[in-house]
Design a protein around this nucleic acid. Structure first.
Lengths: 219, 219
DNA sequence: ATAAATCAGATTGGATCCAATATTCAATAT
DNA sequence: ATATTGAATATTGGATCCAATCTGATTTAT
């Protein structure tokens, strides 16, 4: 006799919870650049000991989101304009490849989902939410791709410049332009999906790539 | 009174030591793919408790070198041929950019250093050392570049496929060809260094890029 | 009064201990 | 003989405690 698989959601470990929470807090800018992370304080916040907190911090450091110095603790990493630019260059190299790989794999469902995300982004009036909505759109766009490592690295790169993106978007007309570029990208993707002829598809893949690249280098 | 800054080599933390040691052991293939890492065993090996070991393992996981499952521990990650290929594609994207950035910054000293490393690689008869010598050559080649993030990611990518590289090199004539390609790369770099005319330099940068790309896609 | 020395918290890194879960293997039932 | 149950062991995740180091205010010497 076999039970229907119940999928008991495996309760995540404390260190994972702390890790995710800190990561989110950092990329959302709730923690200032250069602000130190006090283990004890965080531990109290999550009702745990400092052990899982330290594990979370060491993982954050491996992702480059914080830097630690012995006996001095961890601080949120600060990026120079020079470094920020480098990360955008990295994105400009990786993300077109991801979308090229994703376009042929996009289902109509996924496309309409992406359109929704896109619309939600353009419609939003809340500056605090812009970063999340932008990330959400891009993640959806890339989700069809099976380039797991490319996506992993792109995601990390996006994380690291998230607060710069947010700052950019808050600037006048940053949102408008980004919204329009998002539209262009998704139009290019959808066109590729409709037409089945090989060279036509290829042309639209290139179109999607180009739109994305333009979007990234403009910012 | 002020002491002359003694540069007391800050004794690294235990977790860092364990991390580096495990990382090295994994990429050098001393630990088999799929082999579990026993915290207690490792702790005894380094005369520490399991705390720094766990921190090291969590950092390794963040780098993708091991995977852990709750209460089941960490195992060295296995890569499918599909994933291995993806990582090589990633390298083929990143490393040409790195070398393009590095060539104009290479000093004669660095070039001769790279030549030595290259010769050492070609001369080596010890299959166990090939992976290290290869890595050493590439690291030296990239050291002049100031693209810190590109290098960081490239290094991680190389780490992840290190054992596949070693396996490839052990195959017949893999060494010979790699050695020759290394020569070509460094010749291209050196040529760019000697000539000062802008377009000539550019041509040699492209040459170095092309040599490296050929080297990476061949493997 | 100012600069060096010093002492008391604050903070991190690590060790030891305990609880939760997995694994192994012997005992038992069919 | 094979499958199932259950206890013993192994292994991980986390809590508490201790040592090393840093920071900042206070004291002391000139």
């Amino acid at each position: 006799m076999k039970l229907t698989s119940m999928d008991i959601s495996a309760t995540a470990s404390a260190s994972s919870i702390v890790f995710e929470a800190l990561r989110k807090a950092i990329i959302q800018g709730e923690l200032e650049e250069g602000e130190p992370l006090r283990q004890d304080e965080i531990a109290r916040l999550f009702n745990t000991s400092r052990i899982p907190v330290r594990e979370a911090i060491s993982r954050l450091e491996e992702q480059g989101l914080v830097k630690t110095r012995r006996y001095k603790g961890a601080v949120v990493t600060e990026l120079s304009p020079r470094e920020t630019e480098e990360i955008f260059n990295l994105r400009a190299l990786l993300e077109p490849e991801i979308i090229r790989n994703a376009v042929p794999r996009m289902t109509p469902d996924l496309l309409s989902d992406a359109r929704e995300k896109c619309a939600a982004f353009s419609a939003s009036q809340d500056p605090m939410a812009w970063g999340d909505l932008n990330r959400d759109f891009h993640e959806t766009l890339y989700s069809a791709s099976d380039l797991t490592f490319f996506k992993e690295i792109a995601r990390n790169a996006i994380d690291r410049v998230e607060r710069q993106i947010r700052a950019q978007l808050v600037m006048s007309n940053g949102m408008e332009r980004a919204g329009m570029e998002h539209d262009q990208i998704i139009d290019a993707c959808a066109a590729g999906d409709a037409g089945k002829a090989a060279d036509l598809t290829r042309r639209h893949i290139d179109g999607a790539k180009a739109s994305l690249l333009k979007h990234l280098t403009k910012v």
